[in-house]
Every structure is written in C-alpha cells, then in structure tokens.
Design a protein around this nucleic acid. Structure first.
Length: 242
DNA sequence: CCGGTTGTTCAGCG
DNA sequence: GCGCTGAACAACCG
C-alpha cells in the first residue's frame, strides 16, 4: 500500500461511502473512535502516504506503514485494526496506524507539499532543497516534508530516470538536474498511479529490484543508502555522481 | 521456514 | 535540548 499513488487509488475506491453514516465501529485499535459513531462521512482526503476519513468534527488518519492493507466490503483472515460499518457495506483496515485527528486538516497539513496534490508547489520544493545542500538526493526524495508521498520505489525510479547517482548531494546538482528531480518526483508518481491501476506497475520498473541496466546492460548496484539505510538500486555507469 | 521489505516512531545516546 | 541512529513493529511473499 504505502506510497502516495496507492493512497490516491484507495481514496477513489471508497467514494461510495461518502455521505454515509457509520453505524458500527470495531477493530483491535486502542484508539477510542466512539465519538464518530452515527456520524456521516464528509469525504476522504490524502496527504502523502496518509489517508483521512473526514467527519464534521474530526478525522481518522490512517497510515499503512510497510505492511498495512485494506479491504472494501471484504474481510481478511487477520483481525482488522479498524472496521467502519455502513448500511451498504464496510471498510476494513489492517496492520496500520490509526489516529483520531481533531484539528482542522487544512491548518496542520500543507497540501502543496504532496506530490499527488493538484496544488503541488514545485518552487517550494526547490526552496527547501536549496536550504539542505548537504543532503543526499536519496534522502531528499524520501523527505516527507519536501516530497510527501514519495517512497522507496519512486525514489529509485526517479533517480534512474534523471540519471543521477543516489549519493549526490543536493547542493552539487546542476540547476537543470534539480529541476528534473522535482519534476520527475511528481511525474513518476502519476505514472506509478496509472500503472498500478492497470496492475502493470512492476513491469515498468527500470531499476528497482533489477539486475541489469536497461540503458547500457551494465550491472545494477544494490546498496543500503541514506539516513535510514533504504534499499537503493542504481546504475553506476549511467547515473552520474555530481 | 526464513529472510526481506512500497515506513515511521521513539528511546537512548553523545 | 538538540540531532542522530538503531531497534521495534507489522504481515505477507518467495
């Protein structure tokens, strides 16, 4: 589930519950959601990898982490973290983080940081990158305060697409490459969305989990890089270390 | 059966 | 009190 585009798919998939009243709330979460019982869902929102079920006075924030999943009008064998029951169906969340957010989402989230958002602000991303010149590009792409929604797969594919080595420091990127980085973080996310919808995402991976470079046939390097030691695939021959 | 992972949080350290 | 790091957590696939 995790990366931003997958959350956009979820948001579209649950549209049928908009305006519906929650008639029962169950699950093994310790969070008390009883205040939302018999409330109508105003709508669904996403911010990066976060998914929100919005009510008039609060919202449920769902984060799927690495292993989270959901089912719509279906159940898995494992106990759900949270189930929202409606007259016309149910929405089940598994192995995820769920929280009650009582603040106004518009005041606590800057939607323009979300690469999938219609109000994505590339200039703002550029300013933030300029302010962190010593950050490696592999870390910068995973920074949710700059590129909310970008995950490890998108990171690897974007860097391959723009021919930049993951260890490159942001401050050493030529201006044109910095532009490419920002543009492709968003563009690849939308490509990811379309491929995922058509169940052909993996088929389009050029470097992630690959062994040979589709450009020059050289061996793909796999290393655990960056602040959080994430799996990073890259081609030493065609991805330049600036 | 074991190892690995589309991610984040938080305790513990210097 | 800060920034950084590693551990912990979760469930499913190959």
């Amino acid at each position: 589930m995790p990366e931003g585009p997958s959350i956009v798919i979820l948001k579209e998939a649950v549209k049928g519950f908009k305006g519906k009243k929650v008639i029962k709330i169950t699950g093994n979460t310790k969070v008390d959601f009883s205040g939302l019982l018999n409330q109508k869902i105003n709508g669904f929102k996403s911010f990066g990898k976060n998914f929100f079920v919005c009510f008039s006075k609060a919202a449920i924030k769902v984060h799927f982490m690495l292993f989270g999943s959901y089912r719509i009008n279906e159940r898995k064998g494992t106990p759900p973290r949270l189930s929202l029951h409606f007259k016309n169906g149910e929405l089940n969340f598994y192995a995820c983080s769920v929280k009650l957010v009582e603040d106004d989402l518009d005041t606590i989230y800057d939607w323009t940081v979300d690469v999938m958002n219609e109000n994505w602000n590339a200039a703002k991303a550029r300013r933030k990158l300029k302010a962190a010149p010593n950050t490696m590009v592999c870390d910068a792409l995973l920074d949710q305060t700059i590129f909310a929604g970008v995950g490890n797969i998108i990171k690897n594919e974007v860097l391959f697409r723009i021919c930049v080595h993951p260890k490159t420091k942001v401050g050493r990127l030529p201006p044109k490459k910095l532009t490419d980085l920002i543009r492709e973080a968003r563009q690849y996310s939308f490509d990811f969305l379309e491929w995922k919808k058509r169940y052909v995402l993996k088929k389009h991976w050029l470097v992630h989990t690959k062994r040979t470079c589709p450009r020059d046939g050289s061996k793909i390097t796999k290393e655990y890089l960056g602040r959080t030691h994430r799996r990073t695939f890259f081609c030493n021959a065609c991805q330049t270390l600036y």
